[in-house]
Amino acid sequence: MATAKQSKKDPVDIVHQNAIHVETIKKENRSQKLYTNFSINPFKTLHVFTDKPTTGYTHDNVEDPAFIKALHDARLEPTKKYAYPQTESQEIGWISTPLIVSDRSDRRVNWPRQNSEITKYMDAAWRLKEQTQNLG
């Protein structure tokens, strides 16, 4: 008989349920922040659709300069966006300016292509071979 009483559910206490509900709402309100300034994510690609050609209604689109600037800034290369690399993989090649100015007339570091008699002959032979293949 004692087990029959324990198996019955206690009646629902509305006061306790309301107190739990109020406490849950207070916890949610503590962690929530109200945003009132909305903008489009500049890192997401936009798909702009034109009007139907039969509408006849033309409206003047007013461009927001701050939004246009945000779009252009999002598409800049990382060296122009940030002062220093954001990841370790960006460190390679971050400083891309040459250490010394290249001087093409300095023969110590610049070796231009030079042709000898043999290379000139083979260049002419290859050109002649290509011309005969194109004709035939």
Rank of each mutant, 00 (worst) to 15 (best):
A125S: 11
D51A: 12
E130R: 03
D123M: 10
R113A: 06
A19W: 02
E28G: 00
K120D: 09
P42V: 00
W126E: 15
N115G: 01
K120T: 06
K81D: 09
L76Q: 14
W111H: 11
Y84M: 11
H16G: 01
R108H: 10
Q131I: 10
W126Q: 14
K69D: 08
D103Y: 07
K52L: 14
R104K: 02
T79Q: 14
S102H: 03
T58K: 14
T58A: 08
T24M: 10
T54R: 11
A66K: 13
S102E: 04
T50K: 11
R30F: 05
I25V: 15
I25H: 04
S102I: 05
E77I: 11
T132N: 04
E117M: 02
R104E: 08
T45K: 15
H59G: 05
Y82W: 11
I95A: 13
A83D: 15
R104A: 08
K129L: 11
R108P: 00
I95T: 13
E88N: 15
D106C: 10
D64G: 00
F49K: 12
Y57K: 14
T87W: 04
N37H: 15
S105C: 04
F38Q: 07
I25R: 11
A124Y: 05
E130F: 01
S31V: 07
Q32V: 03
I92W: 05
S31Q: 07
I118C: 01
L128E: 09
Q90P: 04
T97L: 13
R30G: 02
L34E: 13
T50F: 02
P85L: 06
N41E: 10
N41L: 02
T97Q: 12
P42G: 00
I95E: 14
P42S: 01
I100Q: 12
K52V: 04
P85A: 09
T79P: 00
L99N: 10
E23Y: 04
D123R: 10
A125E: 12
Y35H: 12
K80F: 07
E23G: 01
K52F: 08
G93V: 03
T45Q: 13
N110M: 07
G56S: 03
K44C: 05
K81C: 08
P98H: 05
Q133T: 03
K27C: 01
H16T: 13
N37L: 13
K120I: 12
V62K: 15
P98R: 11
N134L: 13
S96M: 02
E63R: 09
A70I: 01
P112S: 07
A70S: 15
